[in-house]
């Protein structure tokens, strides 16, 4: 084991959603800790913007759309050597009152937020591309752990599915010393919220003031926790749904 257990030297980590927000901040943070990153997302341009902000390393870009049918093969076949961790950060949010829920939005959110991350982990494992002692981190949400807001019944379900399955994966993969955890952030300043057409800036400001003792989080706040989970410093942590919310759930 490394002298400095927080280092990610000689580790290669697959990061989904690396083109924006939490995934981008995580890719950058991994590179600062000397890890190599395989970045994926839809937008090649934004993936390159992330790459430009990273410290040098053996990084790789894979463009892939989670809504396409061959996404699992595409990613698995583009990875040449074994990896030491996965950060599942790709995800989407749609707010819709329960009464107006519909099958299309249900399928879309379950697919992007749960199905593909779940099956991608499975495919990589089955292809023997995940080394022993790896760390798999799902970026879930506070809403997957029961702290919710109106209008997110489908989103919360997709994150709840992650939080439940993480524990089973952790149990089954413990014999390989592969650890599986989720981080459950509260509101973080990213496009996910600022580009949500249903929320106004005023709504967000009010919510931040009323609910968050430390204010909304920054992508780096989540990224730093994720790098800890990827490192050997967290080698005793598995099957956890880790809440980080600037104090929002203290009350």
């Amino acid at each position: 084991m490394n002298d400095f257990p927080f280092s990610l030297e000689q580790k290669t980590i697959l990061v989904t959603g690396a083109s924006s927000g939490i995934g981008r901040a995580t890719a950058i943070a991994i590179s600062r800790l000397k890890g190599n990153v395989i970045l994926t997302g839809r937008s090649e341009k934004r993936l390159n913007e992330t790459l430009n902000q990273m410290d040098k390393g053996e990084h790789q870009i894979i463009c892939a759309d989670f809504s396409s049918n061959n996404v699992l093969n595409l990613i698995c076949q583009s990875i040449s050597g074994k990896i030491n961790g996965i950060v599942h950060s790709a995800g989407i949010l749609k707010t819709l009152p329960f009464k107006f829920s519909n099958i299309d939005v249900l399928r879309e959110l379950m697919k992007i937020n749960f199905e593909v991350p779940f099956l991608l982990s499975q495919s990589l494992l089955k292809s023997k591309l995940i080394s022993n002692e790896s760390s798999i981190v799902f970026v879930s949400s506070l809403s997957g752990s029961g702290k919710i807001a109106p209008g997110i019944s489908i989103y919360a379900a997709s994150k709840g599915a992650i939080n439940a399955s993480v524990k089973v994966m952790a149990l089954e993969l413990a014999k390989n010393k592969i650890r599986v955890n989720s981080v459950c952030p509260g509101m973080v300043n990213t496009n996910l919220n600022t580009n949500n057409p249903n929320l106004t800036n005023e709504d967000l400001k009010k919510d931040e003031k009323l609910t968050y003792p430390l204010g909304y989080g920054e992508p780096e706040d989540v990224a730093n926790y994720i790098t800890f989970l990827l490192s050997d410093a967290s080698k005793w942590v598995t099957g956890a749904n880790i809440i980080m919310d600037g104090g929002a759930t203290i009350h």
Binding site: F100, N102, N198, T200, D203
Partner: peptide
């Protein structure tokens, strides 16, 4: 604020038009 979400969803479902929180 929940009723705002309801109106947005109603307009989308009923008239196929997207309106925003703004």
């Amino acid at each position: 604020s929940m009723m705002a979400l309801v109106i947005i969803a109603m307009v989308d479902e009923e008239f196929g038009i997207t309106i925003t929180g703004d």
